[in-house]
Amino acid sequence: MSADAHAVHHTVTGIDNRKFGMWVLIGSECFLFGALILNYLVNRDRGLVGPKATDIFNIDITTLSTFDLLMSSVAMVLALHACQHREIKKFRFWTAMVILGGIIFLGFQYFEFHHFIHAGLGLTTNVFGSSFYLLTGCHGTHVFFGVLWLTSMLVTSFIRGKEWFPSVQLEVAGLYWHFVDVVWILIFTVVYLFVYL
């Protein structure tokens, strides 16, 4: 067993402090994204100038990016499973797949933003644009930091060698990644699929 696997803290709850802390963070993030989604719902039809959501949204592209993020979540659980079972090649491969999925998602988001800006919807064009970019941009920033976090773990894995299996750290990073995924599940439905409602 690696030193990390042995580093189990004795806590009142019986849960590792890092994992407990991540769940508390996720709880607080519910309020952050809830506020941003509400802000979008209230303001989406109040834009007096510029294009509307129905004019510019491309659901086919967004569905593809949703598939991509869902698949990255699968890769995340497979990476954790491999890490817990001390399978170094699979651990590194699936972690790399999560990172790749995150980068592809950010690529889709860049493509979407680029298209919207060329269609005349900037950050300050109208309240719909502001609330849309604030919500999806905040989510994209979370994805970006998740990619950085997992990349640092993958690089560390190569530096520390084949006996480094950071199960707890990877599980905490995985919780963050899955939460970003479930937030996108809600954004995909409420923002994109309800565009005509």
Partner: peptide, 29 residues
């Protein structure tokens, strides 16, 4: 979307198998 949300939280985030305290924190929030 609720079905997808529940599947990811319950199984991928291991809430189904982990301590009830974590599910309560998340559920309450």
């Amino acid at each position: 979307s609720v079905v997808k949300f529940t599947m990811v939280c319950g199984w991928y985030m291991h809430l189904r198998y982990d301590s009830n305290i974590l599910a309560k924190i998340f559920g309450f929030s």
